[in-house]
């Protein structure tokens, strides 16, 4: 079972990549729409309250609405670094 730190790390990586791809303001505003996610100005997730898997799904959904399959591909490549989370999401 992956711990919260993995999720925080993964979510932070995802947000930071989206900050490069979409621009910091847009990426952060989407991340801050996700319930239970606390994100600082650098894209670092400081806290997740609630189910981290749900938070990941919601965040991925927000970014996919903007950049479609590219967001999915970004997430897929990040999940390779977190096999425990990848297993839960498959």
């Amino acid at each position: 079972m992956s711990d919260d730190s993995d999720y925080k790390s993964l979510l932070s990586d995802l947000i930071r990549k989206q900050m490069v791809m979409l621009g910091p303001a847009v990426a952060l505003s989407k991340a801050r729409k996700v319930t239970g996610l606390s994100v600082d100005e650098s894209g670092e997730v400081s806290a997740i309250s609630g189910d981290p898997q749900e938070a990941l799904k919601a965040l991925a959904g927000e970014y996919m609405a903007l950049s479609g399959q590219i967001a999915q591909m970004t997430l897929d490549s990040l999940l390779e670094k977190y096999p425990g989370i990848k297993k839960q999401n498959s």
């Binding site: 791809m21 979409l22 621009g23 303001a25 847009v26 950049s67 479609g68 399959q69 590219i70």
Partner: peptide, 12 residues
């Protein structure tokens, strides 16, 4: 000082 990017994606 501020920017945003808008990707255009065709067939993935």
């Amino acid at each position: 000082a501020s920017f945003f990017n808008l990707p255009v994606i065709i067939s993935g």
